[in-house]
Design a protein around this nucleic acid. Structure first.
Lengths: 255, 255
DNA sequence: GCGGCCAAGTTGGCCAGCCAACTTCCGTCG
DNA sequence: CGACGGAAGTTGGCTGGCCAACTTGGCCGC
């Protein structure tokens, strides 16, 4: 079995993981859902067993395979999204569903940060931030109101983007703003006047809210965002195990 | 530096991780939040660098430390809950907040499984299930309606529990029912008549819904549950990174 | 003083091997 | 025919080592 040269992201174990993920979702391993032994995989791929185990740990975290000492690993689910990038990027998520993402910038202003924003973004007193308000659409219909606060370093770049730019995370990545970690909080909140106007719902009607703080690899916050979704447009999905967890966002299924 | 003999869960790297987690949250490493080098930690604990790296991977997944090639690891946050057990067990979660969990069993019946239940629990046509309806309280006030469907093997055990049993997961664990993986879906739903009656809200008022399917280490489903929370009582919190993710549930903060 | 270059330090990644714990299966014995 | 026991297979865990990629800071030259 040969490795695709473009699969994975450089490191060997990621390539092996990507290849196994592909093999699993395409329905190989018809052997009652049993994976080959780690040693066998190592030989097939021409790598050490440790590398195979690194790859399998990724699949394990995504809930694709089980792992129990003494038995071969068992294939569980089959399809799970690339959780991290899809979770952060509305654009990426929408496209993976075959929907056409859109965005309408309502406003972006530079202003002094309030106490909560300073704490979230770890800014010094007196620091300023860029505050953005944006309506996001799927194939033309409004589904979400996004309120994002950026530290100046990032906000300056965002403010220079064209108002009709669909994706913000992609140009930011090209400017060296890397997203590495995110903390999310999900709850319900009533629509305020702005939400109601933009989303076309009544004031006070329930919205699914996701609050998110994202940091770069050094732990420096790069954005603090509050997204409010119309009910029925989105659901958040999490797989977690004794080992680790993976979060994803997907279209709400029909109950 | 010596390892606590009771910290961790058997394996060496878990002990190291537990010890480091303790050291981080207690505020050691005052050195501008810099962790010692992996090699130094390996020497301190008397283990190999690979074991230290396994331990640090756990902390990395929880968002406690960064990791960037070329630089020492940086301490990020300080406190994050033990996500898996707290997420699954209402009882465990409530107690960790200092609240007194309660449960009132409304009904538990054995009946034929419908198509959706058979698929979720991977049961054969004609199989039966145990369907449970339970109201859960925090310090006496109703906060959540729990609807759980068990396969017969598990349901028989649940049905024998006393109606006022606070925790179900703990006695199940003692009977050899192990929880290893869970898939969660979070969205908003309107209260139906039962929800409204039990929670004391109006019909149609929004509830935060968590659907959950839990499996044991072999991948066999052991429960399928639908929990509906009153708004404002709970929020779901997730940390995810390029490597992996950790989900937790917590009391909703004051906006 | 400033800029560039180089070396040391650090993490990412990979390998080969070893043993323990556990599961499964088969053959044997009662 | 069933129960028991042991061997083989498999994953969990740990070691020690090696090199590459990257960051940082200091030294040197200009």
């Amino acid at each position: 079995m040969a490795l695709e040269q473009d699969s994975g992201a450089g490191s060997l174990y990621r390539k092996v993981a990507a290849d196994l993920r592909e093999a699993i979702t395409s329905g190989s391993f018809g052997d009652a859902g049993r994976l080959p032994a780690e040693g066998a995989l190592a030989e097939q791929y021409g790598v050490s067993r440790g590398t195979v185990r690194q790859a399998l740990a990724l699949l394990r975290a995504d809930g694709l395979v089980t792992s129990r000492r003494g038995t071969r690993r068992v294939v569980l689910g089959s399809a799970r999204v690339q959780s991290f990038s899809e979770l952060l990027s509305f654009t990426h998520w929408a496209r993976s569903m075959g929907e056409e993402p859109g965005g309408r910038l309502e406003s972006i202003v530079r202003r002094p940060a309030d106490a909560a924003e300073r704490e979230q973004l770890r800014l010094d007193p007196g620091a300023e931030v860029y505050a953005m308000l944006r309506l996001r659409t799927l194939s033309g219909t409004p589904v979400m109101v996004e309120r994002t606060v950026y530290p100046p370093r990032v906000g300056e770049l965002v403010a220079q983007l064209p108002p009709d730019a669909v994706s913000h995370t992609e140009p930011l990545r090209e400017h060296g703003i890397l997203f590495s970690d995110a903390d999310h909080t999900i709850d319900v909140v009533g629509a305020n006047a702005d939400d109601a106007r933009l989303l076309g719902c009544r004031r006070g009607s329930p919205l699914l809210r996701e609050k998110r703080r994202t940091t770069d690899p050094t732990g420096t916050p790069v954005e603090w965002s509050q997204d409010r979704y119309l009910p029925g447009t989105v659901a958040f999905s999490i797989h977690n195990s004794l080992a680790s967890s993976a979060l994803s966002r997907h279209a709400r299924e029909s109950d």
